[in-house]
């Protein structure tokens, strides 16, 4: 018998007996809208404090695609701001140039930052590399996510630095994190997990933080829906080429039948990190011979990509 679930009746909140809007299967708890909002914000605050993600005086660049995760991130950070003394935010939207997808999310990002009164910067792939993503990808569609990812990371980092930011926050949620662990395992590259968590050793390398990493994707969508902040937006047309899309479907299916699977994957990652603590897993940092950005080899990923695209 599940808590608060009576056959033939809709379940109620574990905190106040209002009708439930979500069920948290891992801790077997139902929550109403009010308590879900409170719980999500509290968990994000705990993540930020426990992992030391935001300090007094930080200027955090929030990557705002306009989709659900980054929308929730900016809303939550704005509300937590009074509890983060001396911190400030700037939202940055990268316009990749994806027809039929970007216009709606861009509109959503603009209206959100206006409503929250957050400084908003927009950067484009066209300004970064001279073309829209759609043009760059002609004949290379199957590599869409790799190419886009490299350029988006660079555009975001440049814009963050230009805005005087001291760190970059992204909307990656618990599902994203669990997918990454599994994808790295599938590719035979588990060490990458530990390598990418390095917070940077160079003055030009901004730390990246993920305040939503403990929140399941469904709870983020629910958090927005109960506050009338959820909008149905188009999905990126290139996701169908991504390994991540397959891993996402596989993992949601598995999580559904075995609640806690995603959490276990993340715990495995933390365990690996603990084993590696004190061991130098960061590759020695070089500087790119063309652009001077920190990188692990002779040329950075962006410059290598520029060459292969003939830019």
């Amino acid at each position: 018998m599940e808590p608060h679930a009576v056959p033939g009746e809709s379940p109620v909140c574990a905190c106040c007996a209002e009708p439930a809007v979500v069920y948290q299967p891992v801790i077997r708890r139902y929550l109403c809208g009010t308590h879900l909002v409170r719980d999500v914000e509290e968990r994000v605050r705990t993540t930020i404090l426990e992992t030391g993600q935001i300090h007094a005086g930080d200027r955090v660049a929030v990557g705002l695609s306009g989709g659900k995760d980054s929308t929730a991130l900016l809303v939550i950070l704005s509300r937590l701001l009074p509890t983060l003394p001396g911190a400030s935010f700037v939202a940055i939207t990268v316009d990749e140039g994806i027809a039929g997808y970007r216009a709606d999310t861009m509109r959503a990002a603009k209206s959100l930052t206006q409503r929250l009164g957050v400084d908003h910067r927009i950067v484009t792939f066209r300004a970064l590399i001279g073309d829209d993503l759609d043009t760059l990808l002609i004949g290379r569609e199957t590599h869409a996510c790799t190419i886009c990812g490299i350029l988006r990371k660079k555009a975001l980092a440049d814009a963050a630095r230009a805005a005087g930011a001291t760190s970059i926050a992204t909307g990656h949620n618990l599902d994203d994190e669990a997918q990454s662990v599994l994808m790295n395992a599938f590719r035979g590259d588990l060490p990458r997990l530990v390598r990418t968590t390095g917070t940077g050793t160079s003055e030009t390398f901004l730390p990246r933080i993920k305040p939503l990493m403990a929140i399941p994707e469904k709870e983020i969508a629910s958090y927005l829906f109960v506050q009338d902040l959820f909008s149905v937006l188009p999905e990126c047309p290139y996701t169908k080429y991504a390994l991540r899309a397959e891993v996402r479907a596989l993992l949601s299916d598995y999580e559904c039948h075995h609640p806690g699977t995603m959490q276990h994957l993340i715990e495995s990652k933390k365990t690996i990190e603990q084993y590696c603590a004190g061991t130098p897993v960061m590759e020695p940092l070089h500087r790119c011979r063309e652009c001077g950005d920190p990188c692990s080899g002779d040329l950075c990923q962006v410059c290598r990509l520029r060459h292969s695209l003939g830019k």
Partner: peptide, 20 residues
Amino acid sequence: ANPLEVIVSRNGKLVPEEAT
């Protein structure tokens, strides 16, 4: 539909899978 990939409303209000 995979319950983890959707949210569901009943008469406009969000509900969990166990809702009638």
